[in-house]
């Protein structure tokens, strides 16, 4: 397709993405080399770049501007607010995300996306290759990009979902599996999940080219096996988390309890419902009495 004329629209975002788009215009980021120009009126544009989650006041304007854009009328949503409203998801004036108001062709996740990611996304959409060295694309050590699970280490405790600042992590319990799913289209890339993970299983990598045409695919997931209750057989808890907790008790916290590890394990294998039964309570009390006696002796 010939010359690209971009019109930028922002409603209800933090304007970080807009500054990054502005930054794309400097020679370092080659946006100008791609035969792309930024225009001042929607009537002159054939590509619409959206940032922000769209609020009540921006909605009418967005619909008007979309009508005015010339064919082929490609719409690119840049930044996570334009994908899913991100952290402002539950804000009362928000009516977006934009793809519920107008058709969106491409999504560039990130908060905000690096200028390199925006330029690469535009180049990919145009089918142009940018000749650049490895250094140009490389994000520095410690960069907070796309998530990665270490399925060996992840025990499915859901601590990441608890701390998540943008409700980006779902914990979905199936019949025998638990799925921990990071929707990085929702993510604010704060890396609290990485800091909170007790087993360092979740990590933010240096990968940041996340262009997609379907925001439902902007996900990373990990499956963990669930274990059944030893009394009723109902599925209730990840096996790995029980192993981890037991190991922590008898090896790290109180080594003297090691003799009782099988008793502690059997107590832990009872689901919350069965724990309330008389027999279980009696057994638990007996175990606690034994443990406290052992603690006194030490």
């Amino acid at each position: 397709m010939g010359k690209i004329s971009v019109y930028r629209f922002l409603s209800a975002g933090c304007n970080g993405c807009d500054v990054e788009i502005l930054e794309c215009l400097v020679p370092r980021y080659k946006l100008a080399d791609l035969d792309v120009e930024v225009v001042e009126r929607p009537e002159e544009a054939n590509v619409l770049i959206l940032t922000g989650g769209v609020n009540i006041k921006g909605k009418e304007e967005l619909l008007k501007i979309y009508e005015a854009i010339n064919p082929p009328r490609i719409v690119i949503a840049v930044g996570n607010c334009a994908l899913t409203k991100e952290i402002f998801d539950k804000g009362y004036p928000m009516v977006g995300p934009p793809d519920q108001l107008i058709p969106v062709n491409y999504y560039v996740p990130g908060c905000p996306p690096r200028p390199q990611a925006i330029v690469k996304a535009v180049a990919d959409i145009l089918g142009v290759k940018i000749e650049e060295t490895e250094d140009y694309w490389l994000a520095p050590e410690g960069f907070r990009g796309k998530h990665e699970f270490d399925s060996e280490k992840c025990m499915g405790c859901g601590a990441c979902a608890q701390i998540c600042t943008a409700d980006a992590i779902d914990v979905i319990d199936g019949p025998d599996k638990r799925i921990i799913r990071v929707n990085y289209g929702h993510c604010s890339f704060c890396a609290f999940c990485q800091d909170e993970c007790p087993t360092q299983a979740l990590r933010l990598t240096r990968e940041y080219h996340l262009l997609t045409s379907d925001r439902q695919t902007a996900r990373v997931a990990n499956e963990v096996n669930l274990v059944g209750c030893s009394v009723c057989g109902g599925v209730f808890f990840p096996q790995k988390q029980i192993d981890w907790a037991l190991k922590r008790i008898v090896e790290e916290k109180v080594p003297a309890y090691k003799d009782f590890s099988s008793d502690i394990l059997s107590a832990m294998m009872i689901c919350t419902k069965c724990r309330r039964e008389i027999g279980s309570i009696k057994r638990a009390k007996k175990l606690l009495a034994n443990l406290s006696e052992r603690a006194r002796k030490l």
Partner: peptide, 15 residues
């Protein structure tokens, strides 16, 4: 103004 309003002060009290 109002084109950027996001209801942040309300959101503060939900987290």
């Amino acid at each position: 103004l109002g084109y950027m309003h996001r209801g942040i002060e309300k959101l503060f009290t939900t987290r």
